[in-house]
Amino acid sequence: MIELSGVKKSFGSNHVLRGVDLNVRRGESMVIIGGSGTGKSITIKCVLGLITPDAGKITVDGQDILNQPRDAFLARFGMLFQGGALFDSLPVWQNVAFRLLRGSLARPKDEAREIAIEKLRRVGLKPDVADRLPAELSGGMQKRVGLARAIAADPEIIFFDEPTTGLDPIMSGVINDLIREIVVEMGATAMTITHDMTSVRAIADKVAMLHDGVIQWTGPIGELDQTDDPYVRQFVGGLAEGPIEAVR
């Protein structure tokens, strides 16, 4: 469904992606792991068209992402950002229903609010949260609102950028379970980037390890602990010794 081939991206002399090849099938939950600064976020931003790659090709359902009408293309996606990226000036329900209040998916305000409250309920938040501002919520609640916004328009493809970063272990578990449930329930294709191994085990069907600008290893979650790949073994085991330099 989503295919990246030879994707390269540099920022000045910093060659972040050096030829990423990755294939995500429909309905699959792909988790990209890798250390901080290895280009995981850049990879999904390239798929969304937020960053234009210097070289390589990205296709969704066989069609080059650059040749598709932007509005219709983006309407197929939902994304949970690392920090939530909620709009400070809007109440929670308008954040969740943002896409439903404007553009091609726009619908009446009352209906959009109802859908927003339903999605909030789906991520475990009570309706009284709907009229609060994002700044009044805890980090875990903000993540849930971000998740509700990502699924508000029932997207086919959902991206999760570091979904558990900054959360306590219990809240991380809650978010991981929610992501897994929602992805299965909606039959969506999911791409998650994380360096939290608990998340990987909870969310992934398939895992890809990004290091040094390329996908070093990819395989089903069941093979993650059996692989001989030295990069994966070092990362999964959290070892200071190995091919990945501890000080980057």
Binding site: L48, G49, L50, R70, L74, G78, G83, L86, F87, D88
Partner: peptide
């Protein structure tokens, strides 16, 4: 600027705005 550094601008784009 704050919207940019907190990825709210990217979020706008992903929400087709």
């Amino acid at each position: 600027g704050t919207m940019k550094v907190t990825e709210q601008i990217d979020a706008l784009v992903t929400l087709s705005t």
